[in-house]
Structure formats: C-alpha cells, structure tokens
C-alpha cells in the first residue's frame, strides 16, 4: 500500500516538474543581444558567412521555442533551445571578436594605403616645384592642375575611412598612388629633356 502511494507521489512530482518547464527566456535574450553586438562589430561585412549561420541558428532557436510552446504543457522540453541559445551566444562572441579583428586589419590596410598615397602626392608636389616651366607651359599647368586634383582626392580617402568603408578607401588610395606616380613620371621625363628651369614671369 505504502509502495503504491510512493509511486503515485513520484508520478505527481514528475508531472509537476515537467509541467513547470519554462522557455530559457534570459538565455534567448542574451543570444539575441550577442547577435546584435556581432552585427554592430561589422560581422555582416567582415564575417558574412558566419554571421549568416548565426542568424540561421537564431531562427532555429526561435522555431524550436515556438514548437515547444505549441506542445501540451506536460510534453514541453526546452533542452534543445537552451543548447541552441548557449551555442548562439558563444558563436556570436567568437564572430564578434573575429569581425572586429578583420575590421581592424582592413582599417590598418586602408590607413597604410592612405599614407602611401599621401607620400606619393607629396613627392609629386615636390617634383612639380622643379618642373620645367619652359616650352610646354600648358603641359606643366595641366600637371599642376592634376596634382591639385590628387590632393583633393586624398580627402575622399579620409571620408571613406571616416565612414568605415575601408575597401573603398583602399582602392581610392591605391588609385591616387598610381596616378601620382604617373604624374611624377610625366614630370621626370620633362625634367630629363630640358634640365633645370628658370622661373617665368606672369602675364
């Protein structure tokens, strides 16, 4: 008799415990927040594939919670949801760190390219000061005009860096560097032809 009563109470306890299963709300919120943090760190740009997978995990998590919510109270089991939340949170943090690192690398590369471009423009400017103001005055003025243009383009590189568009900044800086070199070669060729110049008068 006593044994029977124990079995009944055990069954009731189990039912109560099972009936009390609650979704891991806090863990889910933490996972959602971790995803948002990862996105803000540039994960969608710098770790696009992993970020997409992370979004997939969150979708799966939401579906799992919804599936369990639909079940009869006694049969709900949020164990998988808990596992998914934990895994999403851990992955988010890892991706956030990786993206931040990749972003820093892209920034460093853009800054490096910017510096190289600035130096190239400066060198070209110095060379323009020695440019022949001789026979082809129009060409020299055109070169000066181009150098002014290059100086102005450097501002665009800075604007791209400010917008954190590092790939654009890098391509701009590279183009400016190439163009500066082109102008420098143009001046050097002119210098080689006619030697050092004497300043001219204005008209």
């Amino acid at each position: 008799m006593l044994r029977k009563a124990s079995l009944v109470s055990l069954a009731v306890t189990l039912i109560v415990i099972a009936g009390c299963a609650e979704p891991p709300t806090q863990q889910i919120q933490e996972a959602e927040k971790a995803l948002k943090d990862a996105q803000e760190s540039g994960a969608a740009t710098y770790s696009a594939d992993e970020y997409a997978k992370l979004e997939g995990t969150l979708t799966t998590l939401r579906k799992e919670v919804a599936d369990q919510d639909e079940k009869f109270t006694l049969f709900r089991d949020y164990g998988k949801a808990q596992q998914l939340s934990a895994s999403a949170k851990a992955d988010s943090e890892r991706i956030k760190a990786a993206s931040a690192q990749k972003k820093e690398e892209a920034k460093a590369a853009a800054l490096q390219a910017q510096q190289v471009a600035e130096e190239a423009v400066k060198a070209t400017q110095d060379l323009v000061a020695k440019a022949p103001v001789g026979k082809d005055r129009a060409a020299v003025e055109a070169i000066k005009n181009d150098v002014e243009g290059l100086k102005s383009l450097l501002k665009q590189v800075q604007a791209s860096i400010d917008k954190e568009d590092y790939p654009a900044a890098q391509t701009q800086a590279k183009a400016i560097h190439d163009m500066s070199q082109g102008v420098s070669i143009e001046i050097q060729n002119a210098l080689a032809k006619v030697g050092k110049r004497i300043p001219t008068k204005k008209k």
Binding site: A138, E141, A142, N145, D146, E148, G149, L150, S152, L153, Q156, P167, A168, T171, Q172, K174, A175, I176, D178, M179
Partner: peptide, 21 residues
C-alpha cells in the same frame, strides 16, 4: 585638361576604382 579642373583626376580615380573592385 586644365579646363576640366579636378574633374579629370576624379574620373580617372573612379575608373581605377572600378578596375580594382
């Protein structure tokens, strides 16, 4: 070329950017 001012180098930059991308 001078008449175009900075427009010339700006266009050149965009073409080079297109090539880089």
């Amino acid at each position: 070329r001078i008449l175009l001012g900075e427009k010339g180098v700006q266009t050149d930059l965009l073409v080079k950017q297109a090539r880089s991308f």
